[in-house]
Design a protein around this nucleic acid. Sequence first.
DNA 1: CGCGAGCTTGACGCATCTCAAACTTAGTGG
DNA 2: CCACTAAGTTTGAGATGCGTCAAGCTCGCG
Lengths: 216, 216
Amino acid sequence: MQTLAASRPLSHPAPHGAPDRDDEIKLIGVAKSFTRDQEIYGEGEAADFVYKVVSGAVRSMRLLADGRRQITGFHLAGDVFGVEIGVDRRASAEALTDAVVIVARRATLTEIDQGARLWRHALAELDRSRDHVLTLGRRSAAERVASFLVEMAERTHAGGELTLPMSRQDMADFLGLTIETVSRTLTKLQADGLIEIRCCRVVRLRRPNALAELCE
Amino acid sequence: MQTLAASRPLSHPAPHGAPDRDDEIKLIGVAKSFTRDQEIYGEGEAADFVYKVVSGAVRSMRLLADGRRQITGFHLAGDVFGVEIGVDRRASAEALTDAVVIVARRATLTEIDQGARLWRHALAELDRSRDHVLTLGRRSAAERVASFLVEMAERTHAGGELTLPMSRQDMADFLGLTIETVSRTLTKLQADGLIEIRCCRVVRLRRPNALAELCE
DNA sequence: CGCGAGCTTGACGCATCTCAAACTTAGTGG
DNA sequence: CCACTAAGTTTGAGATGCGTCAAGCTCGCG
């Protein structure tokens, strides 16, 4: 299932520039590549490995019994994902695009002394997750899409023009909306002059401040 | 503002029975009491302290500029809260009921060697927050209320009869609904025989399995 | 050039929100 | 102990934002 690309053991090659502090989690493992939509791990499996994105992007998600899907996060180059508290996976992860990730045994994390980094990583994820809770609980469709674009622009260090690694369906499942509402909302934001949709996945933020204000 | 009740320094007095593993975070600090609705800390303040509930309950929340409120979590006896990654508070906390909490200097956390516990605590919170994301993103009002009741029953070890420490408004702001929808939904669940509302804040789960199924 | 996946647009329906009023409960003072 | 009050909750009627269903369109790819 998982295509083994290269098996050279490697420590992490600092992905997108040096982090502000020494917050880079070290993974000692093997690089694997995944093709678009390929499962990296599934809900209920043993959580024996942790991952770090080298290139491409990954989605984490949970499913309800009837198939409704909620994406809990997108992982971009440099992001660590798949760190769980329990023995089993509570979420699944799939490659959003063709992607290369480092796979490390879970025990590796704690063997090399980096307790504080792990803690801060979890707290940073928690912070982001709570933002997400605020968005899903209290923001309108337009506000959700705006905050999503602003966040993605920040995370990808996009200067004005932003290339999204995910489809409209992924955006919808992340934002708790339908694909149609996401599409309509983007069209509306464009009509209002806040963004320009260059092509499906390329968006220019024309008035980033106005977008940010939408998020209050 | 913060009523100082007792200033006896104390380590945590294991609140509601021993935890499964040694996951109890140790706080060395002072007990303070807060009255219902009293602010414990506010968004934007310095995050110099961490807290643990001794008795009563606490809500953590974030506000949008126009006053919309999202409660990100309820903290019951034994729960640690107010642990942040940054220097400033990204959320505020208020007493849900009259409550006593232990207040500890933030540095205390890391001084006494309990890195793994802190990490697991953050991961456990993250897990819960992601459940919350799933609920807010993809569940109907009935499913939200059902999952809330099930979760609260678990957390309070309620055997059938559950006494909620929060108002309908708090439930609504936690579940991303309005107070009217929460009220109507509870009435509906009662009409369907899943619960019995003994009085506003006392609920008996008549068919806990059916409720759990609603959450899939 | 034509096909298919993904995206957009339209029309309509419904779950939830809004606004408003009645009711219940808890608290207060006579 | 019982009015009286205020806060919280429930209920109702109507509005609306987003979902659903169904075409039609665009663009990348064979």
